[in-house]
């Protein structure tokens, strides 16, 4: 089977299947994912918080029928947390595989969410795995594991975070096929709200317009833009009868800012929309 036909079959199969995990395709991200997968290339997804990165990976795993191992990276995540460690039992010590090692052995998509949050030494273990070698070296046991043919590495991060001590090393970045995600287009975002929260299209459009207005303030008055996720929260609360102003205050404004003045200004903005 040629590469093209493989991709075509995969895409076809996808469109035919009934989706249990909803994802609104934005652009050509599904194709890129399929192309990268055909060559076992690792993928890097960049995008602001709550724009659908994780949902996309879940959707692709479901469509491709691969096991998905998600690791949410955090400050204290060490290499051992990914690779595994020796544990002691009544019979002596034994080796316990970490989530990454498990995926490398058995095949599946290993998704490292917000990789920028992990310590820098952690990301170095990915190097041999994310180039042509496709192997994982376990220092503690001295084992070298060749990656399963179905293993795929996907990492994501949010380039908006401006903590200077955090950032992907260029040497790490250059091992990935990279995609930039952004918030969906207004039409798509309204569709997502309708689908996820079951609100009317008209209400969804108003929420999306509110979102667009608030996003103008990101990086000036707000640290982060309002995410599609937050809009979905507000839409869900409204669908169950919560008053629009109240839903927006608690699902959008309060999560975004602690500043009283910004809070008041945004509340007035919400009133302008509803």
């Amino acid at each position: 089977m040629t590469l093209d036909t493989r991709i075509e079959t995969a895409t076809e199969a996808m469109t035919k299947k009934a989706n249990s995990c909803y994802y609104q395709v934005q652009d050509n991200e599904v194709d890129i994912f399929n192309f990268a997968m055909a060559h076992n290339l690792p993928i890097l997804i960049k995008g602001p918080t709550g724009c659908g990165k994780t949902r996309f990976v879940e959707y692709m795993a479901q469509e491709l029928e691969r096991e998905l191992v998600t690791v949410s990276c955090h400050d204290d995540l060490t290499a051992a947390d990914l690779l595994g460690r020796h544990l002691v039992s009544s019979d002596g010590t034994f080796w316990q595989d970490g989530p990454l090692t498990r995926a490398v052995r058995n095949g599946g998509i290993c998704y490292l969410d917000e990789i920028i949050e992990a310590r820098k030494d952690t990301t170095v273990v990915l190097h041999s795995l994310s180039d042509h070698r496709r192997e994982l070296y376990l220092e503690r046991t001295g084992e070298v594991i060749k990656a399963h043919k179905d293993f795929m590495l996907v990492v994501s991060y949010n380039p908006g975070y401006q903590n200077m001590m955090k950032g992907l090393k260029p040497s790490t970045r250059q091992r990935f096929v990279a995609m930039s995600f952004d918030y969906p287009t207004p039409e798509n975002e309204a569709d997502i709200l309708v689908h996820e929260a079951g609100i009317s299209l008209e209400l969804a459009k108003t929420l999306v317009k509110l979102g667009a207005d608030i996003r103008r303030l990101s990086d000036i008055d707000l640290k982060a833009a309002v995410s599609t996720r937050l809009l979905i929260y507000a839409a869900k609360m409204m669908s169950s009868g919560c008053h629009a102003q109240m839903a927006c205050l608690h699902c959008i404004i309060e999560p975004l800012t602690d500043e009283t003045e910004t809070n008041k200004a945004l509340s007035t903005l919400v009133n302008a929309h509803f």
């Binding site: 207005d213 303030l217 003045e261 910004t262 200004a265 007035t268 903005l269």
Partner: peptide, 15 residues
Amino acid sequence: QSQLLIYYRAMGGDG
């Protein structure tokens, strides 16, 4: 004043 400035930017005024 400070609220109005934020509101102005949100409504699409020049930052």
